[in-house]
Computed example of a mutant assay.
Amino acid sequence: MAANVIIAGDCGPAHGPKDGFPVSGYIDLIVPTLQAADFRLVNCMRTYSTNAAESSDAPQVAQPVEMAELYTQAGFDGITMANNHAFDAGPQAMIDTVDLFRAPGIQVTGAGRNFADASQPVIMEKEGLRIAYLGCTSLGKSDGSAGSTTPGVLNVSINTSYEHRGPHAPVRILTNPDQTELAKLLVVVRNLRPSVDRLIVAFHSGVIRVPRVISDYQVTVAHALIDAGADLIVCHAPHIPKGIEVYKGKVIFYSIGVFAMTKPFAAPSWSEPAWSHGAIRNHMDLDPNYPFMPYGTDSRFALLAKAGFAKDTATRVSFLPVFFDQTYKPQALEAGDPRFTEVVEYIEWASVDMPHTFTVAGNEVVVTA
């Protein structure tokens, strides 16, 4: 009794057939890798509805319904919609998207008509082995957290404070999860855990675009989820890969990057002083070869997290290095490819001071303590 699960990151191209990008084109290089797994999971960053409200901040979120064919063509079994964009086009567009995925049998977690609905996990079963996938976020809109009778996402909000250390030192930014909301999430995890053999939590969180930096709250929440019973934590949101930690024998991916994403414009932050004066640009600029993936040079590669689950043995966790070509197609790399080494070395750099060991095994990188 064993099952392999592949978990992909942020997904939702904003360019379709009218722009010269066939929907199926985004996945034709990666489909063989996905099909080799028993189950496939991903984070949906868009809404697909005819009832979308206009959003001046993120107009790319509201996509035509036909763009959702990417998820069925890729064969995804489960989708998390617990993220910062699920509510951008309004609650009805979010609910329409949940229903659109569920209609052909794709399970959705992390968003729904109310807290109970948003807290429902994806359940995968193979030969008596039950695996759950639960989506949550710390980046939900202020009015977009699911309530007892209101739609939204499964959200844990974050409190931010600043420690001033004088004019000679940078201000320290302190971030902590709201304890009441975190407690509610942990109750969901504890109640779910006895009914499944393994539990994956997708935690949409983290500092976007800036390499290596992991926020205090991410560590706090990820550790608490494992203490409550989670077997694997997979984070996304920064749009670039970040470090990997092994905590109490369980693996935490602090960001696996994007899976298939495009956007027609760069974030306004690139015109802010921190970028234009070079304080952050020195570490990450926009890549002119990827004008429709304007998340920084490090977004040109990503990870697929992979878990091998069995009833009576320890979980085998690994990652598959992925690179994007200039038509925004992700492709899993082979170990002999120089880009494979580039990704592994980058993740080693991003994981400094975190407990971990990486071992190349075939075309995967196995993660152990």
Rank of each mutant, 00 (worst) to 15 (best):
K18E: 13
D325K: 01
A314P: 07
L134I: 14
S255A: 15
F253M: 10
L320F: 03
K126V: 08
F358I: 06
H164F: 12
D227R: 10
P273K: 13
G128K: 09
D285F: 06
A36M: 02
Y328A: 00
N176Y: 03
M293F: 02
S157A: 11
V221T: 07
R46F: 07
S205E: 14
S148V: 09
R193L: 08
L100P: 05
A36I: 01
V366F: 01
S138W: 04
H283M: 15
K242M: 10
G112C: 04
R102C: 00
K248Q: 14
I106D: 03
W349Y: 13
A310E: 12
Y254C: 12
P167Q: 05
S148D: 11
F319E: 05
F21I: 03
S24R: 08
V343R: 05
T180R: 04
S148I: 09
D10E: 14
V196K: 13
G16S: 03
E127Q: 14
S276K: 12
I123M: 12
T341G: 09
A224I: 06
F87P: 00
F301H: 08
Y217H: 10
F259D: 04
Q63G: 01
I240Q: 11
F101P: 03
G140A: 07
A224P: 05
R339Y: 04
M45V: 14
I6C: 00
N43G: 10
F301P: 01
S255M: 11
H236Y: 12
F259C: 04
Q92M: 02
A369N: 06
T368L: 00
G152T: 05
N43F: 11
A2R: 12
V322C: 00
Q326I: 09
P177M: 06
L286S: 05
T175Q: 07
D197T: 13
L186K: 11
M293S: 05
L129C: 14
T97Y: 00
R40Q: 05
A89T: 03
S269E: 15
T262D: 05
P355D: 14
P170E: 02
Y133T: 06
P264H: 05
G152Y: 03
K242N: 09
S55R: 03
P104N: 06
L129R: 14
W349E: 13
Y295W: 15
F340I: 08
Q73G: 01
T220Y: 07
A169I: 08
F76L: 04
V65S: 01
F21M: 12
G152V: 03
R193Q: 13
P355T: 11
R172C: 11
L232E: 09
A169G: 02
S24A: 10
I7V: 15
F358E: 05
G112V: 01
N84H: 11
T175M: 04
A146R: 04
A274L: 07
V187I: 06
P321V: 07
T47N: 06
G128S: 12
A267G: 15
A307K: 02
V153E: 11
S55D: 13
E181Y: 03
V360K: 05
C44N: 14
I7Y: 11
E334P: 02
L34A: 01
L185N: 07
P91Y: 01
T47L: 00
P268V: 12
N289C: 10
L186N: 07
N363Y: 09
V31Y: 03
I158S: 11
H168Y: 10
